[in-house]
Design a protein around this nucleic acid. Structure first.
Length: 212
DNA sequence: CACCAGGAATGTA
DNA sequence: TACATTCATGGT
């Protein structure tokens, strides 16, 4: 239960300061998750691309109102009426692109028997398969792996880059370099990775929003 | 009014 | 490899 590395010490500092991730992270850092919650996280991982989380919540609420915050439902709707799907997620911005992206992701997951099947199988080759989907880059793939499929994969984003630079952990922002830095200095535990990454963003917002 | 938010794809040099 | 552009809403 104890981290001896510098990275681990920094994590404990965040835990002392903020406790477990709350607010918007209550769902993403929740353990265990129901299947419906995992699907909501996977959908949110697409919707949140370059978009404020408040707008993502509006889009997710819209999907829930129609009973469509699920991958099988999204797949069916995208086949039947892609424009209706785009209209539902409009508040999240980039709605035409993201309707396509959700279609590709839902088709992939449904075609492989659902998220829980994915979580059990394909321990190794899953990340390249996610990356091969249009609309799924490194950050989105790792967000799905970590928060929806509960794999010990560290997510790197702009907050993580700033955080690493600020704490003198790395001078370069290369995605896989930083990913390997965190993963090789921490227990291989998805729960630790979830909380750490969430706290990095919480801390980044805390430090960047002083003017309010 | 400009700028940004939990990116990725595509094109150019 | 390193930037630039596009996609688009809603809050500040």
């Amino acid at each position: 239960m104890k981290e001896t590395s510098l990275v681990g010490e920094i994590y404990r500092g965040l835990r002392v300061k903020y406790g477990r991730p709350g607010g918007q992270w209550c769902l993403w850092s929740k353990r265990p998750k129901t299947l419906a919650e995992k699907e909501e996280v996977a959908i949110g991982a697409i919707l949140t691309q370059n978009t404020n989380w408040r707008n993502v919540e509006k889009a997710i609420d819209g999907l829930k109102r129609e009973g469509l915050c699920a991958l099988a439902g999204i797949y069916r709707l995208a086949l039947k009426n892609k424009k209706q799907l785009a209209d539902l997620i409009r508040p999240a911005g980039f709605f035409n692109q993201k309707a396509d992206y959700l279609f590709f992701l839902s088709r992939f997951v449904v075609g492989r028997g659902g998220l829980e099947e994915l979580q059990k199988k394909h321990q190794k080759g899953l990340r390249p398969q996610l990356l091969s989907l249009r609309g799924v880059g490194p950050e989105t793939a790792d967000s799905i792996l970590l928060y929806a499929l509960e794999k010990p994969v560290f997510v790197i984003d702009e907050y993580t880059r700033r955080f690493a630079a600020k704490n003198n952990l790395a001078s370069i922002g290369d995605y896989h370099f930083l990913k390997d830095l965190f993963e090789s200095n921490l227990r291989r535990d998805y729960r630790l990775y979830q909380d750490f990454h969430a706290l990095i963003i919480i801390d980044g917002k805390h430090n960047g929003a002083q003017a309010h």
